[in-house]
Amino acid sequence: MSVLLEVENLAKHYPVRNGAILARQVGLVRAVDGVSFTLNRGETLALVGESGCGKSTTARLVLRLIEPTTGAVKFKGTDITTLDGATLKGFRRNAQIVFQDPYASLNPRYTVGQTISEPMEVHNIGDAASRKARVEELLKLVGLAPYHAQRYGHEFSGGQRQRIGIARALAVEPDLVVCDEPVSALDVSIQAQVVNLLRDLQRRLGLAYLFIAHDLAVVKHVADRIAVMYLGRIVEIGEKRALFSNPRHPYTRALLAAIPHPDPSRKGRVTPLGGDVPSPMNIPPGCRFHTRCPFAQDICRQQDPVLKNGVACHLADELPPAGVDFAGGLAPNAAKRLALYAEAAART
């Protein structure tokens, strides 16, 4: 498998200033603070973590929608942080984004057809007639109908709008699509439709996804590999199966354990992680998770652990096996009826 994207030691720091004129810098928000990963062609890497962990900032840095403080983003071997003009535009054609909020990310004064053909116009692809044909093709690809091209964004439901956002991202045939929480704003039944669509498109078009999410259950469904972020750093990265069956970082364990499980017999069996995420303006010394970590020792308060063998934890090799068990699954009656549902849905 060939590498499509290489992110090296990427950081984004925002100075905090006080006073109107001659503003003094009074602090530094370290939103992303040294992140490295690779993404292969046709692969999905999920960046997961809670609010403020820097996952969305990382996504924007990867697309160079914001400028990094330090670090490199290599796309097909070229560092895009130094590109400008035509070469930057060339990169943009290859890397697109689907946003979280399907209500805010469509221009209300554009028809769906205009929305989807705009990227093609920007990149001078085809003429008016071929773009029109391509819009119809894209609408069908995402499960909408060609006649929808004449309508406006407000005429569609949240799930349909997200399909329009996906069609727009695919219009220029990118290799990389950054999906920034693409289903978090949708109802569960619609979430499932969009997740299925994204997987289907990946198989058909060979897309690579950088998938930003806070919901590990959704991530389990779409990702090949997962990177868990905490306070601007990756604390654990690995193959999906390994990460779920043997989470090594205490934060990954806590995240997995905190997900409410749709099985009442497991009610209240988890001791929640205490405290809140510290402010990225005031990152704790040593391991940044030590203030909430149930295993923290002196070394954790003093030394910042480096990411080694996919985990950034001094104690990773000494921790007891993680107690997260995913045994269970659907109850027999539920499984039987869900199978009938799937059959009937396939028939009609």
Binding site: A192, H221, F244, G328
Partner: peptide, 20 residues
């Protein structure tokens, strides 16, 4: 049933979610 099928679960591997 549709709601139950729509939620991705940690405790099983399904190819596709059962969307409504």
């Amino acid at each position: 049933l549709g709601l139950l099928g729509s939620i991705p679960r940690l405790d099983e591997d399904r190819e596709n979610l059962l969307a409504i």
